[in-house]
Computed example of a mutant assay.
Amino acid sequence: MDKVSPIYNNIVQQIKSAILESQLESARAVNQQMLSLYYAIGQFVSANSREGTWGTGAIETISAQLRREMPGLRGFSATSIKKMRQFYEKWEEFLNRPPMAGELEKAEFDIKTPIIPIHALINLNRSPMAEVLNFSDFLALSFSHHMEILEKTDSVEERAFYIHQAVLNHWDKYTLREYLKADLFHHQGQISNNFALTLPKTLHTQKAISMFKDEYLLDFINVEELGERNPQDIDERVVEKAIVQNVKNFILTFGKDFTYVGHQVHIEKFEHDMWVDLLFFNRELRSLVVVELKTGEFKPSYLGQLAAYMRVLNDDERKSTENPVIGIILCQNADKTFVKYLLQDYNQPMGVATYKAMPEKLKSVLPDEKLLLEAMRK
């Protein structure tokens, strides 16, 4: 293969960058056009179907005829059209664009004079809800992402939060679904901690507080695999084993920029052996993160144990370019007021969070709740 001149290589790289940027801009434009189309159709369907202008089963009939007249058309099933209506109805109050004169009049559709304003959403002459929602984020998110959010949130602030996070972190639909299921909006930044007293910089403190939640949903733990164990033999190792086997899911649950280092990590000081349950590194915080797993209620002694691990890791493992080690106790129950009170006496950054093994809605199908709680002790 001929060696490419540095001059030509530079030219190629510039053209390549331009092509990729153009492709990205084209994809964004297509997504914006699609959102605006769906919003407009939703507006049209809402105006005509909610007040009885169209008869029963109209949406199903319209969908069927559309697909007959446009073979290969995708995304316009009756269910999809109803989702477009939902998309419009959920947002129209907040986007607050009154119809233009003559738009959406309840009249027979004339194909020569369309009355569906397909560019209306894109052509808004201001950024709606500027204090809450970044409208460029809104237009950057796919319709399927929007529907995931609309179906699982209650407030516009909550919607705006997930829209921004999904765009910022490039979440696919399934990642977004996991964060919605874990209720990230209500739990992020709520962890009981002493970060403000122990971390060196205000900005670093804010990042750490926002990084961790007060409760984690570990629904990938399959309690059915535990069998009928002797309760005396059950401890937090089962939780740990499930996390290790599903470490990708755990990191997704735990937050962004976490790298798994290991479990039962051996550390030693003055001939005293210790084993860290779970050890991670967070690129954003530039810190090792120790996670100690506990079952049942939080106990004050857990903090002392965690502090010992952190002291050794800071002294022997932390690199000069890294920030102090952060420690997290993950237990099933904790009194936040009590935890915050105790954390005042510790000079290392620590927090206490709780976890659930599975969604509350699934507990009703379990044979015995006490058995589940006992099973989680290993």
Rank of each mutant, 00 (worst) to 15 (best):
E151Y: 14
E151S: 12
T153I: 08
T153M: 07
D154K: 14
S155H: 14
V156F: 08
E157I: 09
E157C: 09
F161H: 06
F161Q: 09
Y162E: 05
I163E: 07
I163W: 06
I163K: 08
H164P: 03
H164R: 04
H164C: 00
H164V: 01
Q165G: 01
Q165M: 04
A166V: 09
A166E: 09
V167C: 00
L168D: 11
L168P: 02
N169S: 11
N169T: 10
H170R: 15
H170F: 12
H170N: 14
H170I: 10
H170M: 05
D172C: 10
D172R: 12
K173Y: 12
K173T: 08
T175P: 12
L176T: 04
R177E: 04
R177P: 00
R177L: 04
R177G: 00
L180R: 03
L180T: 05
K181G: 05
D183C: 01
D183M: 03
F185T: 02
H187V: 02
Q188W: 03
Q188Y: 09
Q188G: 04
I191C: 10
S192G: 01
N193T: 09
F195Q: 01
A196F: 15
A196G: 11
T198R: 07
L199P: 00
P200C: 07
K201Y: 14
K201N: 11
T202I: 13
L203F: 13
L203W: 06
L203N: 13
T205C: 08
Q206C: 13
Q206G: 09
Q206N: 15
K207V: 10
A208R: 01
S210C: 05
F212V: 04
K213I: 06
K213N: 12
D214C: 12
E215I: 11
L218V: 04
L218E: 05
D219K: 11
D219E: 12
I221Y: 15
I221N: 10
V223K: 03
E224F: 15
N230M: 13
N230F: 15
P231N: 11
